[in-house]
C-alpha cells in the first residue's frame, strides 16, 4: 500500500511540474453487469483524475463508497460483501497514454489512444492495456474508455447463493472531462 502511495505521489509530482496538466474532481465512472436475473449498474461522479498532456501520465482515484446504485440493498452488498469498502476505501489507476505523441492538444478533435497502467481494486492490482479516446475541445480534454474486468482477477468473491444472479465480469466506463490546471 505504501509503495503504491509513493508511486502515486511521484507520478503526481511529475504531473504537477508540467504546464500541460489537466485535472478533474468530478469525473464519472459507471459500472455495469448483466446476468440472467439481475442487472447491476452504479455511478460514481466524484472521480479525481490528473493527466499530463506532455508525458501522457494519467492517474485517477475513486472512493468506493461514492458509487451510487438504484437499489439500496445492492449498494449495501457492494460495499459490505464484494469490495469491502471499509477495508479498501479507494480504487486507483496509475498509468500512461502510450501514444500521446499522436495527440495534438492544440487542435480540437477526437484522438484514439491506448492506456496502459495498473488498476487497483479491492486491494488487488492488475495491469490494464485498453483503448480509449481523448477529445480536445478548447481548453478542455475529455477522456473516455470502456473496458471489462473479471471480478476474480480482483479477488472479489460472489457468494454461492447469488452466483447465478451476478455476472462474473463488469463493464467499466470512464468519462473524465479534464480542465487545464491553473498551476
Amino acid at each position: 500500500m505504501k509503495k503504491t502511495i509513493i508511486i502515486a505521489i511521484i507520478l503526481l509530482e511529475g504531473i504537477s511540474a508540467s504546464s500541460q496538466k489537466f485535472i478533474t474532481k468530478t469525473g464519472h465512472i459507471r459500472f455495469f453487469s448483466e446476468a440472467s436475473i439481475e442487472k447491476i449498474e452504479a455511478h460514481n461522479r466524484q472521480v479525481n483524475a490528473a493527466f499530463d498532456a506532455t508525458t501522457g501520465d494519467f492517474v485517477f482515484k475513486v472512493l468506493m463508497k461514492s458509487f451510487e446504485f438504484e437499489k439500496a440493498l445492492m449498494q449495501e452488498h457492494f460495499n459490505e460483501n464484494y469490495v469491502a469498502s471499509d477495508k479498501f476505501p479507494t480504487a486507483k489507476f496509475l498509468g500512461k497514454i502510450t501514444n500521446i505523441k499522436e495527440v495534438n492538444i492544440e487542435k480540437d478533435g477526437i484522438y484514439p489512444v491506448t492506456v496502459e497502467g495498473k488498476l487497483t481494486i479491492h486491494g488487488v492490482t492488475n495491469t490494464l492495456n485498453e483503448k480509449g479516446t481523448l477529445e480536445v475541445k478548447k481548453d478542455k480534454i475529455e477522456g473516455k474508455a470502456s473496458f471489462t474486468i473479471l471480478l476474480a482477477d480482483y479477488k472479489i468473491d460472489i457468494p454461492g447463493a447469488v452466483v447465478k444472479n451476478i455476472s462474473k465480469t463488469i463493464e467499466i466506463t470512464v468519462d473524465l472531462l479534464l480542465e487545464k490546471a491553473s498551476k
Binding site: A8, Q46, N48, M64, S66, P89, T90
Partner: peptide, 14 residues
Amino acid sequence: GYCTGYNDTDVVLE
C-alpha cells in the same frame, strides 16, 4: 452529509 472518505486531496461528503 454522508462521508465517503478521503482521496488524498479532499474529504468528500455526499
